[in-house]
Design a protein around this nucleic acid. Sequence first.
DNA 1: AATTGTATCAAACGATTGTTTGCCTCCAGG
DNA 2: CCTGGAGGCAAACAATCGTTTGATACAATT
Lengths: 226, 226
Amino acid sequence: MSADATPARIIEAAGPIFAAKGFEAATVREICHEAGVNLAAVNYHFGSKEGLYVATVRQAHPNRLEQRFVPDQPAGATPSQRLRGFVWAMISRLLELKAAEWQWRLLFREITDPTPICRELLQEHFRAGFGALLAIIDDVVDPELPLHRRHQIALSIVGQCVYYRSATNIIPMIVGEDELAAHYKAEMLTDHITGFSLAALGLGPPVGSAPGSNHRETCPERRSDP
Amino acid sequence: MSADATPARIIEAAGPIFAAKGFEAATVREICHEAGVNLAAVNYHFGSKEGLYVATVRQAHPNRLEQRFVPDQPAGATPSQRLRGFVWAMISRLLELKAAEWQWRLLFREITDPTPICRELLQEHFRAGFGALLAIIDDVVDPELPLHRRHQIALSIVGQCVYYRSATNIIPMIVGEDELAAHYKAEMLTDHITGFSLAALGLGPPVGSAPGSNHRETCPERRSDP
DNA sequence: AATTGTATCAAACGATTGTTTGCCTCCAGG
DNA sequence: CCTGGAGGCAAACAATCGTTTGATACAATT
């Protein structure tokens, strides 16, 4: 039986548990019970609990997460459409995190509460996703805009998306459960964030006007930074 | 000796430890050793470790955190100036979180990894800060804009600010240490986020054009230091 | 003076943790 | 048939955790 070999079964059981509880709170006993293996199997095959964690994260990384941030786009898509595609891929994945595969949750936990082991893995992954967003931005901003300004624009867009996940616990306290259920689905948030960001970039109408009313085009110039 | 009474000394010692390690990882032994009191003092005065945690959060809340989000503004401040003041208060406090008082770090930890106990405390606190931002937004958007749209605008602004804290670990991996040190100080980020948000609201020039090409100072808004 | 209640202390308790220990079975190579 | 190593097993180990205990000191009250 090499298909359900013990080390693979342990990793399969450890993934969701590590993802749900974190490294410290997860117990070897629960993992082994879930995997249906003996308690001593973890230390036999992986040396220690830490060794199991490294093996689990290492397997979670490349298999499923490589280009999830970069959805397939039609060839002739406009920058606005590509930006919306990026935001939607990010938002939908973040909001469905609870139901998502454990690989994603484990990676997300590594972001907010990092284990020193996995720096290179994360660096490679997030640089790829961030680069895809930068490529979109580069097409719509002044080519002479400094790199750090373009980075900040990208971070503003990513920040809006991520906030709906990292603040899952306080957003209902602020807007209420009813409004949350009615107006905070993935597609609506994508509309808002895309519209907000396109307006900031001068590619769309400003937010803040009620639907149906006409808005004047003001302030076409830029401001000089200090 | 009511000045250095044992319960007060325990809370003083427990605050930084809870803030640094969280409820689970913090140990009663370390707290008591730091406070210079006996191990049994926690359960004697607070009933349990949980009781101590509640008392600690309860004391952290009202004393120092009530209106930190709402800096004092001059009476005739424009909405742009008030928005910049709000962003600056939030950004500067988030970025200096490591050096900040333990009360702030403890509250921030409750946001990302909440303990079910403190819901009401947090709700009251964040509703106050969020209300201050909403009051600014209400002055510049169409009065008929639905409430949830105004909420989303406020969340977009808050999200940009918070992201620089919650992604502390991956931002240097993306932009590099040099750029981080050069262009991501509190004031520069305040400039960027304020400019980005004002542009999205139609109150300022769009971001994305290089500085120094052609200046046209027709927009009246200008920043003000807090 | 005797009593009561509060506060502190060292010590131990019970539970849970990651890890280690012998002993068992199995099976391919001699 | 014998043998030796790999893998699996129940059990125990050592450390740490929050909590409890019983004794003691001290102040206020009766």
